[in-house]
Design a protein around this nucleic acid. Structure first.
Lengths: 163, 163
DNA sequence: ACCTGAACACCGTTCAAGT
DNA sequence: ACCTGAACACCGTTCAAGT
């Protein structure tokens, strides 16, 4: 709060004329960040490719705001308009891939947890460990492979034959 | 720090005779918690079942310490002796399932991120949302299904034929 | 409607001093 | 070796008062 106020060259308590609390402000910021996640066209040829693209874009966006990432998990992925838009798009793509009903809801949650979790894992800003720092391109490869495994498992197990 | 000191009925700064900082204390606590994760016998018949059991036990242990979970992701899963033991066991089980080399390292990281991430997602202590609170047994089912999908995908894609 | 100064109830941590 | 009192530099937030 005090840092934000300083950036705006106002007194700290001036913020409370615009925002009820720090938590509320963070919720707004969290959803704002999600606005820059690119959603694939819902009529993309291969819905699996669409799911992969959406999650990868979300991963990149989250990595651009490392300090915020841990908050997403703590608040269960930010219930804002943008978050809802991403959820809806994902659900549509899952349905087109043959995953519907309860399995779709569970798959959605699993994909969210995996993507945000991996971003939180990779975010660690300073990297003050003793062992090798684990380059971001290695982590991106790791994320991509894990996402492929996950989507593979979801479509292999949870998808019902196309009707 | 001050709360811990109060529980010990000492002055807050007395803790600094035993611990260099709050971060160091938390690192110790984090690894201590992992001590109660149950590891399956390494010669279990089906290594996939072993992996499932280990991750599920870790999930339960983490849920018993909701306040700590967000810290695990922030510190990349706590580099303590117990964390290392769990990593070694997982790597062994992955190898017995046919996942070796670089794929094994990536699969390990994916499993860690998924398990801790889901625990962080389910931890939310107070649950002060407007919509339905998402019962813990539903979340456990969700975790279990996602873990199955993930292991399915890993073994389907990353496993090399047994030699 | 939007800002300010002053204050409140907190933090983690340091330092000198005691036993 | 282990503790204490006092203090420092922080937090988020409230309240009354100003324009």
């Amino acid at each position: 709060m005090r840092a934000v106020a300083q950036r705006l060259t106002v007194a700290p308590n001036a913020l409370y004329s615009h925002v009820p609390s720090k938590t509320a402000l963070l919720d707004d910021v969290l959803d704002d960040v999600l606005a820059s996640v690119q959603t694939p066209a819902q009529d993309i040829d291969d819905p699996t490719v669409g799911l992969h693209q959406l999650m990868t874009s979300a991963y990149h966006v989250l990595l651009n705001h490392p300090g915020l990432v841990p908050l997403y998990l703590a608040r269960q992925g930010a219930r804002g308009l943008n978050a809802q838009r991403l959820g809806d798009t994902t659900t549509t793509l899952l349905a087109r891939a043959g995953v519907r009903g309860q399995a779709a809801g569970e798959a959605l949650r699993v994909l969210i947890v995996y993507t945000i979790g991996f971003a939180a894992f990779a975010a660690r800003p300073p990297t003050e460990t003793d062992d090798r720092p684990l380059a971001t391109d290695e982590l991106l490869d790791n994320f991509t492979n894990g996402l492929r495994w996950l989507l593979d498992g979801i479509l292999h197990t949870a998808a019902t034959p196309h009707r």
